[in-house]
Design a protein around this nucleic acid. Structure first.
Lengths: 205, 205
DNA sequence: CTTGTTTAATAAACACTGTTCAGTAAGTTT
DNA sequence: AAACTTACTGAACAGTGTTTATTAAACAAG
């Protein structure tokens, strides 16, 4: 009876179709302007159909959020080829910021919006995507410790500190709080702040 | 002719009444669940009336955002009494995080939501509130430099680095990204990360 | 005091939103 | 061929921000 399997396949394909349309609209117009009806129109189905494949909009956003983590980790791959552990770490930080700049909507979904997190919370699940990505950072920090670049011994603590700095810089920018600086200075100042941070932890951590 | 002045006074009072109701509902139920109709109901006016006093919802949010900066700076006052400049700085950082924890909705309005910033952007104004608050930080950092605590000489650059770290920690928590850690460890780990940062800049900046 | 004019407030509508549910039509099983 | 299951949808519900024509009150001028 390959029939149940075919149905399952069709179901998975429909989910993919919905996500594909959602992703497209999302990246094109930004989250705020994408409604279930828009997605339904794009795939030429009724809005109600989407609810047969996703519990609600948050679950759909969560699925996109998962996808986005795949993309981030993919883009992280080149840094693992860098030999020097400290340079591996700083390049990773720069990559995080770069990802935020180049994929503002995805970054939002991954690290700023609460909506996708609510699906996790209501079924009190763990945030695997975040855990894994953070795990990578912890490992790179650990390698810096092992190489004697950092004197401090708690990799997780240090990783959280680094993540916070790099995330803060990105989030303040994306949420338009870099408006304290003139448009011309903004980019340079952010780059300088990041470099200052790198130097500071190299000397002081 | 005190008549135009009275009208102006009445107008200001109405604005205050709207903001008061909005603030109340906002803090009670969170931004997402407060509609113009809710506010109108609370003050027993028609929804359309609100549009006679605020261009749109964003402008209303911007007004609340301004208020919130007043509260933050008010709560900053005690730190200026601290003599040691470095301790003044670290206490300021802790105060920022504390404010985010205790006033999540206000913090959101001030530093995370884009909506209130959009009113500034569309009338290409400057973000005075952010400028002033950041200015305070820059000054405290400058005092650390002057006292010889930091070797690095660019106060603004250092201030942006510090703001980013402290903001990142707060924002990641408020937007539920501390879910990478178990509920028990969360608070302690954040505190430790902040202290590690303080130590690191004391030694390395 | 009665005009004419300005102002403040509103009811109603517009074009949306996420979500639910009864009903239909096709696919599958007996 | 009849019974059952599944996939899908139209229509509705209860909300959202915002605009506009209309009304009623406050004010100014003759």
């Amino acid at each position: 009876m390959g029939i149940t399997e075919r149905k399952e396949r069709e179901r998975a394909e429909m989910r993919k179709l919905i996500l594909q349309a959602a992703r497209h609209l999302f990246l094109e117009n930004g989250y705020e302007k994408v409604s279930i009806r828009n997605i339904a129109d794009a795939i030429e189905y009724s809005p109600a159909t989407i609810y047969l494949y996703f519990k609600d909009k948050n679950e759909l956003l969560f699925a996109l959020h998962q996808e986005a983590f795949g993309k981030l980790i993919e883009e992280f791959q080149p840094v693992f080829a860098i030999k020097d552990p400290f340079q591996r770490l700083t390049t990773m930080g720069q990559q995080y910021i770069h990802f935020a700049f180049e994929n503002p909507e995805l970054f939002d979904l991954m690290f700023i919006m609460t909506a996708p997190m609510d699906t996790l919370e209501c079924r009190d699940d763990v945030w695997d995507e975040g855990r894994n990505a953070f795990g990578i950072l912890v490992q790179v920090v650990q390698e810096c410790i092992d190489a004697g670049v950092f004197k401090h011994q708690d990799a997780e603590r240090a990783a959280l500190m680094i993540w916070s700095m790099v995330h803060g810089l990105s989030a303040l920018f994306l949420r338009k709080r870099m408006m304290v600086f003139s448009e011309e200075r903004r980019g340079k100042l952010m780059q300088e702040a990041f470099e200052l941070f790198s130097e500071t932890i190299r000397k002081g951590l």
